[in-house]
C-alpha cells in the first residue's frame, strides 16, 4: 500500500509541480523591479495579475494604459482589488532602468505594494512580447511602435483574457478577472 501510494505520488508529481503548459510562467526570465529587486514573470504567482508592456517616455498610450488599469481596479470590490497585482514590463531596455521606473511610479502615484514596473534585457523583452503576442518595434527616433493589450493572468500564470480596450475598463476583461 505504501509503495503504491509512493508510486502514485511519483506519477502525479510532474503534473502537480508544473505550471499549465500554456502558462506564461513557463517563460523563465530575469527582470528588475523598480525597487531594484530581481524578479521573474511569476513575481505575483498565486494572485490574479494584469500584465502589460509599455515604455516610460511614451507620450500618449502609456499614460492611458495606467489610467485603464486604474479604471479596472475601480470596478472591482475592495477584496478583489486587494488581491489583484499589476506587472508592467518596459520595452525600453536602455532608458527604463529601475531608477527611471521608480521615478515614474512616484510621478504617477503608483502603489508599488501591488504594482510592479519592470526592466528586462532585449532578448527577454522579445520573448515576453512574443509570449503575450505583443508586437513592437524600436523606431529610428528611439520611440517604440507597439500594440497595446492588457492580459489577465490566473493564479498559475495561465492567460485568461487579453484586451485591447484602452481608456476604460473592458467589461469582458472584468468578467475574466472576477472569475479568477
Amino acid at each position: 500500500m505504501r509503495v503504491a501510494t509512493a508510486l502514485l505520488a511519483l506519477l502525479c508529481m510532474p503534473v502537480l509541480a508544473g505550471d499549465p503548459s500554456t502558462s506564461l510562467y513557463q517563460l523563465h526570465e530575469k527582470l528588475d523591479a523598480q525597487d531594484g529587486r530581481a524578479i521573474g514573470l511569476d513575481v505575483n504567482r498565486g494572485q490574479p495579475t494584469l500584465i502589460t508592456m509599455f515604455y516610460a517616455s511614451c507620450p500618449d498610450t502609456c499614460p492611458l494604459i495606467v489610467e485603464t488599469l486604474r479604471d479596472i481596479e475601480r470596478n472591482l470590490d475592495a477584496a478583489q482589488r486587494q488581491q489583484l497585482r499589476v506587472l508592467m514590463v518596459s520595452f525600453d531596455t536602455e532608458r527604463d532602468t529601475p531608477q527611471a521606473l521608480a521615478a515614474l511610479a512616484e510621478t504617477r502615484h503608483i502603489d508599488t505594494s501591488r504594482w510592479t514596473l519592470a526592466h528586462a534585457d532585449e532578448a527577454a523583452v522579445r520573448r515576453i512580447a512574443a509570449a503575450l503576442n505583443v508586437q513592437y518595434r524600436r523606431m529610428p527616433n528611439g520611440t517604440f511602435s507597439h500594440s497595446t493589450q492588457i492580459t489577465v493572468l490566473g493564479r498559475n500564470g495561465e492567460i485568461a483574457y487579453q484586451s485591447v480596450v484602452l481608456g476604460h475598463a473592458d467589461t469582458e476583461l472584468l468578467r475574466a478577472l472576477r472569475a479568477q
Binding site: 513592437y136 518595434r137 511602435s145 500594440s147 497595446t148 484602452l166
Partner: peptide, 17 residues
Amino acid sequence: VEDVGGIFVSEDSRGQQ
C-alpha cells in the same frame, strides 16, 4: 526572423492590428 513581432506595426498603436 528575430524581429518577427516588429513586422507590420504602425506608428499609431491603437486599434493597430
